[in-house]
Amino acid sequence: MSNTITFMIDGVEIEGKPGQTIMQAADEAGIYIPRLCAFKGLSPYGACRVCTVMVNGRPQAACTQPVAPGTVVENDTERLQHLRGNIVEMMFVEGNHYCMFCEKSGNCELQAMAYRFGIAAPKYPYLFPERDVDASHPDILIDRNRCILCGRCIRASSDLDGKNVFQFVGRGKDKQIAVNAEARLADTDIDVTDQAVSSCPVGAILKKRVGYAVPIGERLYDHKPIGSDIEAARTAGS
């Protein structure tokens, strides 16, 4: 059995390895497929659907779809970028995302994704849900207003931290992130160094008392768009 699998992304021939997802192979080839729930080191999840690509003409999540020989993948097309942009807009209106004073601003993957898609303001009506803040832990804060239900914290806690701090509860619009305790984050065994904290793509799980310490101009996405690190690999390699 060959240890390379050849397939196409947007007309470019890519060599993947058996067991890889389309996203993993694309990353290695320097092709950026937008994503929010996928995170290096975590098992594929397929929650956010921002990584949707067309595989032989059918929509699939690039983070969960394995590479297969001869498949034709569409990624950077106008239609897909439009659909992905709509998903991001829906995330904005579903929560309470006030980038203008959020401490994650400039380092936030959701905000950076919106900039990458050129979203100035969502076209959908805001839902303004009532969500709470759990500041009970001495070093960590959960602001559910900003949660996009990506599930990174759930997977990071169980798969990387060896704990089981987070879980989803509720269904549909009432779905939210809950803690594995009677009521509060303070009652769990989470630690501020846990990857469940650092993997949050938005300002929903935060390390306390360090907000705004990085000046504007030096934040992660102040000068380069999200995904440019992956694309840089392609530029350097080509």
């Binding site: 004073f101 401490e103 803040v133 500041a135 306390k208 907000g211 705004y212």
Partner: peptide
Amino acid sequence: QGRPFWEVPVLVQR
């Protein structure tokens, strides 16, 4: 009210 204190200088200037 309810917001973390370090957020206030950035929030309230709005």
